[in-house]
């Protein structure tokens, strides 16, 4: 009887630990995560312009790595910048995980950025972005 109680207690404890770990599961670390897609910013935007639903089905929640030129840096402290796509109406807007990383960027410079695709408003949007050196 005592033995069973002991086993139950251990099981309950293990369940609690697993539950707690799941509850506190960390966000994916994009600086070490391998990308699902490595693309040019123009490729991503073109696919979205062609068929937004199909592009969403393919790219939403995926880790996207882009290499390209910085078109525009937002100076409002929100940590957003836009990648050049050759399409003046639609770029790729990247929201940096650490807004202060924006200081390492300059307009016209070539960068590699990794982020999670959240869809398209005017630009295709990536969130939790990190700059890959």
């Amino acid at each position: 009887m005592k033995k069973w109680l002991g086993i139950l207690l251990v099981l309950a404890l293990a369940g609690g630990v697993i539950g707690y770990k799941m509850y506190n599961k960390p966000h994916k670390d994009l600086s070490s995560a391998s990308p699902d897609y490595v693309l040019f910013p123009s490729t991503l935007v073109n696919e979205y312009e062609e068929d937004e639903d199909a592009a969403n089905a393919k790219y939403l929640d995926k880790v996207i790595e882009l290499k390209g030129k910085v078109r525009e840096i937002s100076q409002d402290g929100t940590g957003n910048f836009i990648m050049e796509t050759g399409n003046p109406l639609s770029g790729v807007q990247c929201a940096l995980l650490n807004p202060e990383d924006i200081r390492s960027l300059s307009e016209g410079a070539t960068v590699t950025v990794r982020g999670i695709c959240t869809g398209k408003l005017m630009d295709v949007n990536l969130s939790r972005c990190v700059i890959i050196l």
Binding site: P26, H27, T118
Partner: peptide
């Protein structure tokens, strides 16, 4: 974009998107 909302806990962000807001269907 619903998926652009960032939560402190990854699990909550997942539940918010998948179960409550159905952000794949309503981005």
């Amino acid at each position: 974009l619903i998926k652009s909302f960032q939560f402190e806990k990854a699990l909550m962000q997942e539940h918010f998107n998948e179960n409550y807001m159905e952000s794949n269907k309503f981005p």
